[in-house]
Design a binder for these strands. Sequence first.
DNA 1: CCTGCGATTGAGAATCGTTCTCATTCACTA
DNA 2: TAGTGAATGAGAACGATTCTCAATCGCAGG
Lengths: 149, 149
Amino acid sequence: MEAQQQFEQFLQRSGLKFTRERQQIIRAIIDFDEPFDVDRLLFYLKQRGEKTSKATIYRTIQLLLESGSLRTISLSPTDARSTLYSLCGKFRAYDLLICTACGKVTDIDKQPVCSSCQLIAKDHGYKLESHSLRIFALCPQCQKKGLGS
Amino acid sequence: MEAQQQFEQFLQRSGLKFTRERQQIIRAIIDFDEPFDVDRLLFYLKQRGEKTSKATIYRTIQLLLESGSLRTISLSPTDARSTLYSLCGKFRAYDLLICTACGKVTDIDKQPVCSSCQLIAKDHGYKLESHSLRIFALCPQCQKKGLGS
DNA sequence: CCTGCGATTGAGAATCGTTCTCATTCACTA
DNA sequence: TAGTGAATGAGAACGATTCTCAATCGCAGG
């Protein structure tokens, strides 16, 4: 809900319209409730009987990124296929715990990580702006299943 | 040197050949001594009077990745243009300090980061496999120049 | 030295995600 | 109701990467 309001306000401030398509897209992103790429989102919208063109999805995602309600996330440094997005509120920091077997994404406490980064930057004489941490590990369920050997 | 030997051994083990093209490519990567993308590498090879096709570069990079001597690095989550690569030995961990103004990449001490990750994974019941940390900050030089406002 | 075989290469075609173009439609104000 | 700029859909264009295929290479066996 919050994300939707944030987006709506951003559009208003920018003199842009909160059209039906844009409403459908932000709602779908909120309801889908997982990191998504453009194709998954398109499919999800189709399932709901809402037909939006790919172009509009890309354009709306662009706006959502600018509004600060959406972020791109890169899960693995290895497979770089299509871009994944996630609501900023959902995964608060750039800090994620990712299961290497099932791909589940979990948010982690950013506090300790932030202060470490602050420290590291300072040590090198840098002025911290932001950071991004990905931890790749095997989740309890997948461990039980004996996955990831 | 180390990277070259590692690659050579990998090829041998896999029953592949250490051809002239592959030699030129690994040498160029070592000498270039900075993160690079395919076009930069191609240009650098041309400068040396060595003409290799783009296809071969992509293929060789693939092998280098498999051999473990090369890694992809994603600098910023925002601009996802062409993939950047770097020798594993050069930037040891997946932990990098990146200047948001000039783009300079610095290696950081992985030890403390590793143990934090270990801790975080354990807290969630996960079994740690690897991680990747990017710190975005303004380097001393760029701070002086007043960049990055 | 010749032959054969699988690995390698270069050139360009194909693919795939993303962005752009443009004609049409929409929302809103005058 | 007309006029204006914003928004949309469809498909073309684009750029990075991968694939295809015919020509070449490197090497072992004869």
